[in-house]
Design a protein around this nucleic acid. Structure first.
Lengths: 144, 144
DNA sequence: TTCCTTGCTAGAGCGCACTCTAAGTCAAGT
DNA sequence: ACTTGACTTAGAGTGCGCTCTAGCAAGGAA
């Protein structure tokens, strides 16, 4: 079922390929996110699936999933039992969180955009009608 | 120009109103994000504009602007000079960063959604055709 | 008066996710 | 034989943004 002569990568090659430092790769492994096979001398050799796992961990991390939750997911994957339902539930829960966060960030971004537009209006105004406007602008900038 | 009898709030009231703890409000002040007037006995009294500032800081923080950058902005606001152009530039720079981050997060979210759909397909498959599928599912879950 | 609440300061502590250091192993190249 | 470079470990250190503690002061209610 498994392909016998799979191409394997050193930790340095995986770091290069994924943009995750070798330090962090070891850290992920120690944290239980990965289990990577070793040579007799102890060196790690990453299979294609390990690299894919690192990439998927990237998706989870960069959407704000904490290491400990990724670990829970990884534990489910390795439990031997069929935990697909739980894993799916965990991912769906996370997706909901991310969608909510994105919406919230968008709202905060709108607040910032409004302020930028206010600045632009203020500066246009000043160009038309002299420096008078500047005073109220200064005090209002963090406040308004 | 300034309204004389403005309503002022204690730190506790501002904490209540903004959802930022009193500890954090003091921390923000120490970090140079706020300058809040005091009573003779040293207690803070927040004006309407201070509360607005806290809220705007919230927009910046929750879109990932570091404290030190918010401090730069606050310093510009308080510099006395007309720094509106710089302030606007700083905010626009931040907005660009946020827009880029949001797009990137969306991409990572898509990767997660794909995996969820893969699980759903796998589970549907299993329902149709027995447990055979489960094996490959387990090993592929972090990898695929 | 005594208690309770709310405030103050300086500074320590925390949780997170890395990030780096020290000291060593190993294999290949010159 | 020696150097180089990539790897190994355990564990310390870092940066960020809070978060909390200790010890004190002031004001109002019972």
């Amino acid at each position: 079922m498994t392909t016998a002569n799979e191409r394997v990568l050193t930790i340095g090659e995986v770091a290069e390929a994924t943009g995750v430092t070798d330090h962090t790769l070891r850290y992920y492994e120690k944290a239980g996110l990965l289990v990577v096979p070793r040579l007799a001398n102890g060196q790690r050799r990453y299979r294609e699936m390990d690299v894919k796992a690192v990439e998927f961990i990237g998706h989870l991390r960069r959407t704000g999933m904490p290491i400990r939750t990724i670990r829970e997911y990884a534990d489910l994957v390795r439990s031997g039992k069929d935990t697909s339902a739980e894993r799916m539930r965990l991912l769906e829960q996370h997706r909901e969180n991310v969608v909510r966060d994105l919406a919230e960030q968008q709202k905060h971004l709108d607040g910032i955009t409004l302020k930028i537009e206010w600045y632009r209006a203020a500066m246009d105004q000043r160009q038309d009608s002299g420096a008078q406007f500047v005073e109220s602008l200064s005090s209002a900038a963090l406040a308004q």
